[in-house]
Amino acid sequence: MSKFQKKRGKASPEVSTASLPDIIFMLLFFFMVTTVLRDSEMKVEVTTPRATELTKLEKKSLVNYIFIGKPVDKFQKEYGTKARIQLGDKFAGMSDIPLFLERHRSKIPESQHGGIKSSLKIDSDVTMGIVADTKTALRKAGQLLINYSAKKKD
């Protein structure tokens, strides 16, 4: 009799959902850890100035970033304290700008090339010399839409 009373089939066909939260937490942590908010490591110090006439930059894929500022502390021994340009994640000179732009441009379908913008993230304390040179380099490379990155003035 005892053999029949067990009724194995009826007892527990339910799938345990106890591990579901763990799976979701694991997903959550995975995304938290792997998400990179800024794709390039900052090698120059940039505190953008404040302004009122701001435009939002939409379509992030059409934007390339040029950073100008003095090198951060750990690179100052090597590169000094004079303002420098950073393209992608490395220091660059004026002559690297056309190639950098071309590399970005090649990733974008031709029909959208007119909408490519350069976001210039420039430190407030930088002097205009290097900025003017960058502007000239951008004009020579045919990159005419630029955006001086700035924060909202309160």
Partner: peptide, 9 residues
């Protein structure tokens, strides 16, 4: 989000 002063050179 990135905001800034848009300029056409």
């Amino acid at each position: 989000e990135d905001t800034g002063v848009l300029v056409k050179l």
